[in-house]
Simulated scan of single mutants.
Amino acid sequence: MIREANVQDADVLAILLEQLGYENTSSFLPARIQTLLEHPDASLAVYETEGRVVALLCLHVIPQIALLGPFLRISYFVVDETMRSVHIGATLEAYALDVARKKGCDRIEVHCHERRKDAHRFYARCGYVESPKYFVKNLHVRSEDA
């Protein structure tokens, strides 16, 4: 079952994010979840099976200036490592596609780190094509500013 995440999911979402390599999110995750739930262009969904959250999908609709439709960005997408290869990812990707269509998006983008080879194969199976060159400039934010 797919449902909107809530602040009470913070502990399990921290575990899922840790599987992606994002450690130590517990102290700020409840506030981030609340911010995303209140943001009109964001969606934070979880996949639940037998009362247990086993996957996270974070989406953002981003308006464009040079093209007619906005695009949907998959910001975070993780299925618990013990639940992979049972079609949860495909179900969530279909959910993202549905959201994109309902929001009038002209494409879906996802950034997936080079080291995540299994995820690359998953996205290719879902019809995504590689669009190289992604540049990032890290801004060092003080913890009191976060």
Results as ranks from 00 to 15, higher is better:
M1L: 12
I2S: 03
R3H: 07
E4W: 09
E4V: 14
V7R: 15
Q8A: 15
D11I: 03
D11N: 15
D11G: 13
V12K: 07
A14K: 00
I15Q: 06
L16C: 11
L17R: 04
Q19P: 06
Q19S: 07
Y22G: 07
Y22P: 04
E23I: 10
T25Y: 05
T25P: 00
S26Y: 04
S27R: 12
L29W: 02
A31I: 09
A31K: 14
I33T: 05
I33R: 00
Q34K: 15
Q34M: 08
T35S: 12
L36E: 06
L36A: 11
H39K: 08
H39L: 10
H39A: 15
D41W: 10
D41E: 15
L44S: 02
A45F: 11
A45E: 10
V46D: 01
Y47P: 00
R52W: 04
V53R: 02
L56M: 07
L57Y: 00
C58F: 06
C58H: 11
C58I: 07
C58N: 09
C58A: 11
L59N: 00
H60Q: 14
I62H: 06
I62Q: 07
L67P: 02
L68C: 15
G69C: 11
G69M: 10
P70R: 01
L72K: 03
S75L: 08
Y76C: 04
Y76M: 14
F77I: 02
F77T: 03
V78D: 00
V78P: 01
V78L: 05
V79C: 01
V79F: 03
E81W: 02
E81I: 06
T82H: 08
T82S: 11
H87I: 07
H87V: 04
H87Y: 13
I88C: 03
G89H: 02
T91Y: 05
L92C: 00
L92F: 00
L92Q: 00
E93Y: 03
E93S: 05
A94H: 12
Y95C: 04
Y95K: 04
A96Y: 01
L97I: 13
A100P: 05
R101K: 15
R101Y: 09
R101T: 15
R101F: 05
K102G: 14
K102T: 13
K103L: 03
K103Y: 04
G104Q: 02
D106E: 14
R107G: 15
R107I: 11
E109S: 07
E109C: 03
H111M: 08
C112E: 08
H113T: 03
E114I: 14
E114S: 13
R115F: 12
R116K: 12
K117P: 00
K117R: 11
K117F: 13
D118G: 12
R121Q: 13
R125C: 06
R125H: 13
G127Q: 08
Y128I: 08
V129R: 08
E130L: 13
P132W: 02
K133E: 14
F135I: 13
F135H: 10
K137P: 02
N138K: 09
N138A: 14
L139Y: 05
L139G: 01
L139P: 00
L139R: 14
H140E: 12
V141A: 09
V141L: 13
V141D: 02
R142V: 06
S143L: 10
S143K: 14
E144G: 04
A146V: 14
